[in-house]
């Protein structure tokens, strides 16, 4: 991995927050993340005391369960220098919302703040914290990139993925129209309001198709599952991958949901 400032020698200890969707549906993203973080000069560990960031409960108004999940997560990750997640949505939850959950708690409040300070979304961690400018990876083909909402608007992830994609040999980035508009996933929203969610993702897949790219990338598996689920249902042969897979050069696994072989 090329870093203009040279590999940082501080060798910090990173706790990987795998995220529940990567854990359950696409472990290869977790391994890609580990490879990228290690290449940036870090030690990576995967604390066992993690499950999910708690958003399904939090966004359903269940604050008590969310707090319990948050407390366990904070405890599991307190020893680390950084907490990194391959998802803007989950990292946003840990970083922006955990402190709110314990606002007036004299013990957990400060701990949640200290924890939040150490949380990063994977790609912005590489670029902003580790100074990575280039990765050694190869991908032949045109890709398009969807800016997932929480990463974009809560954490400011916009240029970082594009900077790294630019360095991937053989890869051409063709931007879709409205890449910053929500894909309609919204966690439980997609289950509670399936018809509206469908209408929103339908606009998204039209923009993806119109970009001319053969591969859809994003930094969030939830959004990717939603968009590729729609793409395969529409019979489109556009594959979908988490950006970490491309950047780590780990594209041997079939794409998400087997997309790309639809026809």
């Amino acid at each position: 991995m090329d870093q203009t400032t040279g590999p940082r020698s501080d060798n910090p200890r990173v706790g990987l927050f795998v995220t529940c969707l990567v854990d359950l549906f696409r472990p290869s993203v977790g391994f890609a993340a580990i490879k990228l973080i290690e290449q940036s000069g870090c030690r990576v560990e995967v604390p066992r005391g993690q499950t999910c960031c708690g958003q399904p409960a939090y966004n359903s108004g269940d604050k008590a369960d969310t707090r319990a999940i948050a407390r366990a997560t904070i405890e599991a990750f307190e020893p680390y220098d950084y907490i990194v997640a391959p998802s803007g949505s989950c990292a946003g939850m840990l970083k922006m919302h955990y402190p709110d959950l314990f606002g007036d708690d004299p013990d957990m409040g400060p701990r949640a703040e200290a924890f939040a300070d150490k949380v990063h979304e994977l790609i912005s961690f590489l670029v902003d914290e580790r100074g990575v400018k280039n990765v050694e990876a190869r991908y032949e083909g045109k890709v398009t990139y969807h800016d997932s909402c929480a990463g974009l608007r809560e954490l400011g992830v916009k240029q970082q993925p594009r900077i790294l994609l630019e360095g991937v040999q053989g890869l051409e980035l063709d931007e879709m129209e409205d890449s910053e508009i929500c894909c309609g996933f919204g966690g439980t929203f997609s289950i509670k309001y399936p018809d509206i969610s469908n209408a929103i993702v339908g606009k998204k897949t039209a923009n993806i198709s119109a970009s001319g790219a053969g591969c859809l990338l994003a930094g969030d598996l939830g959004c990717l599952m939603n968009m590729t689920g729609k793409l395969t249902r529409e019979g489109k042969s556009i594959e979908a991958r988490h950006i970490a897979e491309i950047l780590a050069g780990m594209t041997d696994e079939p794409p998400i949901g087997g997309s790309g072989d639809a026809q």
Binding site: F25, P27, V46, S190, V201, R233, G258
Partner: peptide, 26 residues
């Protein structure tokens, strides 16, 4: 991927559900 799954009708009515790769990351 699944075109239909019990209890996931809200999802699979309009979209496929990508299947897990196999074993969990953990």
């Amino acid at each position: 991927r699944f075109a239909w799954l019990p209890l996931a009708g809200g999802w699979t009515r309009h979209r496929d559900l990508p299947a897990p790769q196999g074993k969990t990351f953990q």
